[in-house]
């Protein structure tokens, strides 16, 4: 919601096994960025944002901030 370019889906892996298999989901949570990038597991918010940007080839221009 912070950026209208971003569409976020939450997918129940159990209910869509073949779709999940396309992305080789073996453990959750697994975040797929576009078709290629992957983030396994949960992260503090700041690191998650940074990793999303990195997987898009965008260098985060400020150090990741841990949530207070």
């Amino acid at each position: 919601m912070a950026n209208t370019n971003v569409r976020a889906d939450v997918i129940s892996a159990n209910e869509f096994p073949s779709y999940s298999a396309q992305f080789a989901v073996q453990a959750v949570p697994k975040t797929v960025v576009n078709k290629g990038g992957e983030i396994l597991g949960a992260r503090p918010e700041g690191r998650f944002v940074s990793e999303v940007l990195l997987s898009l080839g965008i260098e985060p221009n400020t150090p990741p901030m841990e949530p207070q």
Partner: peptide
């Protein structure tokens, strides 16, 4: 959003459509 201002600022760098898919159980 409840993201921190710092995160929102970083996300401004996204200027093309991005699709995030979070697989959960």
């Amino acid at each position: 959003t409840r993201l921190s201002p710092a995160s929102v600022g970083l996300l401004d760098a996204i200027i093309e459509p991005v699709h995030l898919q979070v697989f959960v159980t």
